[in-house]
Simulated assay, not measured.
Amino acid sequence: MNTAVDAGILRLAQLGRLSATSLLVDGPAAMQDLPALLDTRLQVGLHLNLTESFGQPGVCLPLKTLIQTAYLGRLPLDQVRHSIDRQLDLFQTLTGRRPDYVDGHQHVHQLPGVRDQLLAALGGASGGGTAAGPWIRDTGRPRLAGLPWRLRLKARVIAGLGAAGLRRRALAAGFSQNSGFLGVYDFKGGVPAYEAWMSRWLAQARDGDTLMCHPAWGADPLDALAAQRQAEYAVLAGASMAQWLADHHLTIAGTEPRKEPS
Results as ranks from 00 to 15, higher is better:
residue 248 H to M: 06
residue 187 F to P: 04
residue 74 R to I: 03
residue 123 G to V: 10
residue 123 G to W: 11
residue 160 G to D: 05
residue 133 G to Y: 01
residue 159 A to Q: 06
residue 172 A to T: 12
residue 9 I to M: 05
residue 61 L to E: 10
residue 2 N to V: 01
residue 93 T to G: 00
residue 10 L to E: 10
residue 4 A to I: 03
residue 65 T to V: 12
residue 178 N to E: 03
residue 179 S to R: 14
residue 27 G to N: 02
residue 254 G to Q: 07
residue 251 T to A: 14
residue 148 P to W: 04
residue 177 Q to R: 08
residue 193 A to P: 00
residue 50 L to C: 11
residue 59 V to S: 02
residue 233 Y to P: 01
residue 196 A to M: 04
residue 256 E to K: 10
residue 220 D to L: 08
residue 195 E to G: 01
residue 256 E to S: 14
residue 175 F to V: 01
residue 54 F to W: 15
residue 180 G to H: 15
residue 157 V to Q: 11
residue 28 P to H: 09
residue 236 L to G: 03
residue 163 A to D: 04
residue 179 S to I: 04
residue 52 E to Y: 02
residue 20 A to D: 06
residue 200 R to E: 03
residue 122 L to N: 02
residue 205 A to M: 06
residue 93 T to Q: 15
residue 92 Q to K: 14
residue 33 D to C: 13
residue 259 K to I: 14
residue 124 G to K: 10
residue 105 H to Q: 12
residue 175 F to K: 04
residue 98 R to H: 13
residue 165 G to F: 11
residue 247 D to F: 07
residue 136 I to F: 00
residue 164 A to N: 08
residue 39 D to G: 12
residue 68 Q to P: 04
residue 43 Q to T: 06
residue 262 S to F: 14
residue 9 I to S: 04
residue 150 R to G: 00
residue 75 L to A: 04
residue 147 L to T: 08
residue 168 R to Y: 02
residue 111 L to Y: 11
residue 218 G to F: 10
residue 7 A to W: 00
residue 56 Q to L: 08
residue 258 R to N: 09
residue 83 S to Q: 03
residue 58 G to A: 09
residue 62 P to Q: 10
residue 151 L to E: 13
residue 92 Q to V: 04
residue 186 D to L: 15
residue 74 R to P: 01
residue 34 L to F: 09
residue 246 A to G: 14
residue 5 V to E: 12
residue 172 A to Y: 08
residue 42 L to W: 06
residue 73 G to T: 12
residue 211 L to I: 08
residue 21 T to S: 15
residue 74 R to H: 11
residue 76 P to N: 14
residue 160 G to F: 08
residue 49 N to S: 11
residue 168 R to H: 11
residue 219 A to G: 13
residue 199 S to N: 07
residue 74 R to Y: 00
residue 40 T to K: 13
residue 56 Q to I: 02
residue 249 H to K: 13
residue 154 K to Y: 05
residue 153 L to C: 12
residue 10 L to V: 04
residue 244 W to H: 09
residue 5 V to Q: 06
residue 240 S to L: 02
residue 80 V to S: 04
residue 2 N to K: 02
residue 30 A to R: 14
residue 91 F to W: 05
residue 164 A to L: 06
residue 72 L to A: 15
residue 206 R to V: 10
residue 141 R to E: 10
residue 76 P to F: 00
residue 2 N to H: 13
residue 213 C to L: 12
residue 37 L to A: 10
residue 150 R to D: 07
residue 170 A to W: 04
residue 160 G to P: 06
residue 60 C to Y: 03
residue 83 S to M: 08
residue 215 P to H: 12
residue 145 A to F: 01
residue 208 G to K: 03
residue 219 A to D: 14
residue 70 A to Y: 02
residue 125 A to D: 01
residue 227 A to F: 07
residue 6 D to Y: 07
residue 33 D to T: 14
residue 28 P to S: 12
residue 17 R to I: 10
residue 69 T to P: 03
